[in-house]
Each structure stands twice: as C-alpha cells, then as structure tokens.
C-alpha cells in the first residue's frame, strides 16, 4: 500500500511540476509565470505533506507554512511591481 501510494503520487506530482515549469518557461506574460510559480510551490508543499503522511512525522510542517508565506510575499510583490510600471506608462 505504502509503495503504491508513493509511486502514484510521485508520478502525478512530477507530471504536474513538469506542466507548471513548462508554463513558467513559455508563459506569455510575467503574471502567467508568477501564477505558475505559485502552483509549483503548492506542488512542492503537497510533496512535503505526502512525505509527512506516509512516514508519520511532522518535521516538515513549519517548512510548509513558511513555503506558503514565501509564495504569498513573492506573488504580491511581483503583482504590485507590474501594476506600478503599467500605471506610469498610462500617465505619460
């Protein structure tokens, strides 16, 4: 059971991470890349949580919370930066 769960989730999460990385590389705009980076962060968090559930420990829980905080700060900062630059273009 443990091996089956690990293999299935590893394959699924690897495919998901490949898709998110492809969108980061191709993404037509900066905001698409930010969004895909957020999804990649969520996938990493899911991998950490699956490790905790399968091996019965809580070592990664703080890392999980810190990861969501980093994603929040990063995406808000980049979105703010994009909006500011566009505003200056409109005003001139």
């Amino acid at each position: 059971m443990k091996d089956i769960v690990l293999i299935v989730t590893a394959v699924v999460l690897s495919l998901a991470a490949a898709g998110a990385i492809y969108r980061i590389a191709v993404g037509p705009s900066l905001l698409d890349r930010v969004l895909a980076a957020d999804v990649l962060l969520a996938i990493l968090g899911a991998a950490l949580a699956i490790d905790m559930a399968v091996n019965r420990h809580l070592n990664n829980l703080v890392l999980l919370v810190a990861l969501s905080l980093i994603g929040f700060i990063g995406s808000v900062t980049v979105a703010r930066f994009v909006a500011d630059r566009r505003g200056q273009v409109n005003d001139s």
């Binding site: 059971m1 089956i4 769960v5 299935v8 989730t9 699924v12 999460l13 495919l15 998901a16 991470a17 490949a18 898709g19 998110a20 492809y22 969108r23 705009s29 905001l31 698409d32 969004l35 895909a36 999804v39 969520a42 996938i43 899911a46 949580a49 699956i50 559930a53 399968v54």
Partner: peptide
C-alpha cells in the same frame, strides 16, 4: 486505505492545476 485515497486525490488536484495552466487561454481562467 482512506489515507491513500486522500493522498492520491490531493496529488491529482496538482495535476489538474498543471493541465489547466497549460490549456486555458488567458490569465483569469488560469
């Protein structure tokens, strides 16, 4: 068994997000 189902469905959510990122046309739907 319940844990295995929860874990696999949770992983499939990530896969769904990646497929949506690849196939949807613009930022809002992504």
């Amino acid at each position: 068994a319940v844990t295995a189902v929860l874990l696999i469905v949770g992983a499939i959510m990530s896969l769904g997000a990646a497929i949506g990122l690849l196939r949807f046309p613009d930022l809002m739907s992504r």
